[in-house]
Amino acid sequence: MFKRLMMVALLVIAPLSAATAADQTNPYKLMDEAAQKTFDRLKNEQPQIRANPDYLRTIVDQELLPYVQVKYAGALVLGQYYKSATPAQREAYFAAFREYLKQAYGQALAMYHGQTYQIAPEQPLGDKTIVPIRVTIIDPNGRPPVRLDFQWRKNSQTGNWQAYDMIAEGVSMITTKQNEWGTLLRTKGIDGLTAQLKSISQQKITLEEKK
């Protein structure tokens, strides 16, 4: 169930391209415009997507990853294993993690069937560096609404905000991946996880038929 919630949630996290980005210092504006741009692209490019579902990787690479804190999220997933990894191991892992996100997020976007969304009203940021933004996803086919909290983090150097995690039903996506990959990290280390991520990233994206 959580895996499905995570995939549905990713439908609204794909941010804007650099040329049309919203105010990078306001995570609420980023979330709002990102959702609108993403849904528009999914709707307008269905012919290309249906002809070649792996085209979704391109959308992810162009529109999402430049505005997601990939390395920060990847380091959180590694936890204690990050500090013990060599620079070469980290570089290989982050490259594999990025390719994994292209496949995983692309597969999530393949679930698009006309969903709509509501974003919580903007709250004062103050001096906060981590801000959760509640998004409610509404399914046109009558499924119950899904309420999610996207975690946005302020870059201490640039002042810009980027998304790095999502919490559904009190469970963090980062925590879920830590639990899912924990045994592999304990037995085969970061190299074993890197190899698995490379394998997963090679899987073809498949479209979910409308139910």
Rank of each mutant, 00 (worst) to 15 (best):
F2E: 11
F2K: 01
F2S: 04
K3Y: 02
R4P: 05
L5R: 05
L5N: 02
M6K: 01
M6E: 09
M6Y: 00
M6D: 00
M6I: 04
M6C: 02
M7I: 08
V8E: 09
V8G: 05
V8C: 00
A9I: 04
L10C: 14
L11N: 07
L11F: 00
L11P: 05
I13A: 00
I13C: 02
A14P: 07
A14V: 12
A14I: 15
A14S: 08
P15H: 07
P15T: 13
L16T: 07
S17K: 02
A18P: 03
A19E: 04
A19K: 09
A21D: 15
A22F: 14
A22E: 10
D23A: 03
Q24R: 06
Q24H: 04
Q24C: 05
Q24P: 04
T25R: 10
N26C: 00
N26L: 05
N26M: 00
Y28N: 15
K29L: 02
K29C: 10
K29I: 12
L30R: 04
D32H: 00
D32G: 02
A34M: 10
A34W: 12
A34T: 13
A35E: 05
A35C: 01
Q36E: 05
T38E: 12
F39I: 13
D40W: 04
D40Y: 15
L42W: 00
E45R: 07
E45S: 08
E45P: 05
E45I: 07
Q46N: 06
P47F: 01
Q48I: 09
I49G: 06
I49H: 12
A51F: 05
N52C: 14
D54H: 12
D54K: 09
Y55R: 06
L56M: 00
L56W: 00
L56N: 02
T58R: 09
T58A: 07
Q62A: 12
Q62E: 02
L64W: 12
L65D: 12
L65G: 07
P66V: 14
Y67T: 03
Y67H: 01
Y67N: 10
V68K: 02
Q69P: 06
Q69D: 00
V70P: 04
V70E: 05
V70S: 11
V70N: 14
K71T: 05
Y72H: 05
Y72Q: 08
A73C: 07
A73G: 12
G74S: 02
L76S: 05
L76H: 02
L78G: 01
L78W: 07
G79E: 02
G79N: 15
K83L: 05
K83M: 02
K83S: 03
S84L: 03
S84M: 11
T86S: 11
P87N: 14
P87K: 05
P87L: 09
A88F: 12
A88R: 01
A88H: 00
R90W: 13
E91F: 08
E91N: 01
A92I: 15
Y93T: 11
A95V: 01
A96D: 06
A96S: 06
A96E: 05
R98T: 01
R98N: 11
E99P: 08
Y100W: 05
Y100N: 10
L101D: 15
K102P: 13
A104F: 02
Y105H: 11
G106Y: 04
Q107E: 01
A108V: 14
A108P: 14
A108R: 13
L109E: 05
A110I: 12
M111G: 11
Y112F: 03
Y112Q: 05
H113Q: 06
H113I: 14
T116C: 10
Y117V: 09
Y117E: 05
Y117P: 04
I119S: 05
I119H: 12
P121G: 08
E122R: 04
E122P: 11
Q123A: 09
P124A: 06
L125R: 09
L125P: 06
L125E: 08
L125D: 15
G126C: 01
D127N: 11
K128N: 08
K128A: 06
T129V: 12
I130E: 03
I130L: 10
V131G: 08
V131Y: 13
P132K: 05
P132E: 09
P132A: 13
I133E: 07
R134G: 07
V135D: 02
T136P: 08
I138D: 13
D139V: 06
D139K: 05
D139I: 13
N141R: 10
N141W: 13
G142W: 07
R143A: 13
R143W: 06
R143K: 11
P144C: 08
P145I: 02
L148N: 07
L148I: 04
L148F: 07
D149K: 12
F150E: 14
F150K: 14
F150T: 09
Q151C: 03
W152F: 10
W152Q: 08
W152L: 09
W152S: 06
K154I: 02
K154G: 13
K154E: 03
K154Y: 00
N155Q: 11
N155W: 09
N155L: 03
S156V: 09
Q157G: 06
Q157C: 05
Q157P: 09
T158I: 03
T158G: 09
G159N: 07
N160V: 08
W161T: 04
Q162I: 00
A163T: 12
A163G: 09
D165V: 07
I167A: 10
I167K: 00
A168H: 14
E169R: 07
E169P: 10
V171Q: 09
V171Y: 01
V171R: 07
V171P: 12
S172N: 05
M173R: 09
I174K: 09
I174N: 03
I174P: 15
T175Y: 13
T176G: 08
K177E: 09
Q178N: 00
Q178F: 14
N179V: 07
E180P: 14
E180Y: 04
W181I: 02
W181D: 12
G182S: 08
G182R: 09
G182V: 09
G182Y: 15
T183N: 01
L184Q: 12
L185W: 09
R186K: 13
R186V: 12
T187Y: 12
T187K: 14
T187Q: 13
T187E: 01
K188H: 11
K188T: 13
I190W: 14
I190G: 11
D191M: 01
D191Q: 06
G192L: 06
G192M: 15
L193H: 04
T194F: 00
A195S: 03
A195V: 10
A195W: 03
A195F: 03
Q196T: 15
L197G: 12
L197F: 03
K198T: 08
I200S: 10
I200R: 08
S201F: 14
S201R: 06
S201N: 00
S201D: 00
S201A: 07
I205L: 09
I205C: 12
T206M: 02
T206P: 06
T206D: 04
T206N: 11
L207C: 12
E208S: 12
E208D: 15
E208H: 13
E208L: 09
E208C: 13
E209Q: 13
K210V: 08
K210E: 11
K211T: 13
K211M: 14
